[in-house]
């Protein structure tokens, strides 16, 4: 029974990682940049939802919608101000700028909300599910998280396959210059990608803080790093890869916490990542890129 409950917890945590990893992987696929500020967008999303429910007493769906809108705008603004001028710069320059943005968001949050942790009340109004006479307890948060993950994955898959914008995204990620010649507005496509990624980050923030209700300006950093790891684990740039990587990472983390050592769980997660990358250097579902001489 503990095994099953651990498995469910792992899938639930992994679903949050997967939603965050989607933001990383989509941006990487299209703009070829590691957006290190993504983890902090999660934190902003969580704070927004927190403020909307606590101070304004708004209903939960409205609060989540507000958080998503704010994060979407934030993502577009960040992209336009900080990343757009660096479209042709080296990837390292963009990386450092992204780190600057990450510091910026953390410190803005620090000034507005202070460093004291806030207790986030869960957005899920249902109680836990009790099965087998209480032998197996499934929290409502984990059910909602997994469902949200599935819905997001399916709609994103349909979006990228069928819609015009989704096709444009795939074209840009394949070859930016050729896409531009075909009349695709590359800048708009990249902005839309950031917008989608940031909106997803808001959802992830709300779900993460519902399960682990401590909200601080640094709340987003560690899940951000883990989700980035998950994206690489599954093969960065691949949407199913982000899903697979996120869920596996969550399962590994929960299992090593409960069976091996609580303190060493991060070391085990990252150790597994290193081993996977050594065996499959482009991640689990990553494309193998042939090298031209």
């Amino acid at each position: 029974m503990t095994f099953i409950s651990n498995l469910i917890n792992g899938i639930s945590l992994g679903s949050v990682y997967a939603i965050i990893a989607l933001g990383y992987t989509m941006v990487y696929g299209i703009a070829k940049m590691l957006n290190f500020a993504h983890g902090d967008v999660i934190m902003i999303g969580a704070y927004m939802s927190f403020c909307a429910t606590t101070y304004l007493n708004l209903p939960v769906p409205v609060a989540i919608l507000i958080a998503m809108c704010v994060c979407t705008v934030l993502g577009i603004v960040i992209e336009g101000l900080a990343y757009k001028p660096l479209r042709r710069a080296t990837s390292l320059a963009v990386l450092i700028t992204a780190i600057g943005v990450s510091y910026f968001l953390q410190n803005i949050a620090l000034i507005i909300w202070g460093s004291a942790p806030k207790t986030f009340s869960s957005v899920v109004p249902f109680g836990s599910l009790r099965l087998f006479n209480g032998g197996l307890i499934i929290t409502a948060e984990s059910v909602v998280t997994v469902l949200a993950n599935i819905v997001i994955m399916i709609s994103l898959a349909i979006f990228t396959k069928k819609s015009k914008m989704g096709k444009a995204m795939r074209a840009v990620s394949e070859d930016k210059d050729a896409a531009e010649l075909m009349g695709i507005n590359v800048n708009t496509t990249i902005s839309v990608t950031f917008a989608i990624g940031s909106a997803l980050a808001a959802i992830a923030g709300v779900l993460l803080c519902s399960a682990y209700p401590v909200l601080m300006p640094t709340t987003g950093s560690m899940p951000g790093i883990k989700a980035f790891t998950a994206a690489v684990f599954g093969g960065i740039g691949s949407i199913p890869g982000a899903m697979l990587g996120g869920i596996l990472l969550g399962i590994i983390e929960i299992f090593s916490k409960s069976y091996i050592s609580t303190q060493l769980s991060d070391a085990i997660v990252f150790g597994v990542l290193i081993v996977v990358l050594l065996v499959k250097p482009t991640g689990l579902l990553g494309k193998k890129i042939a090298e031209k001489v």
């Binding site: 900080a82 001028p85 080296t90 450092i96 943005v101």
Partner: peptide, 10 residues
């Protein structure tokens, strides 16, 4: 940090 990076690399 952001301004220096954008100014020197754009």
């Amino acid at each position: 940090l952001i301004i220096v990076m954008v100014a020197t690399n754009s």
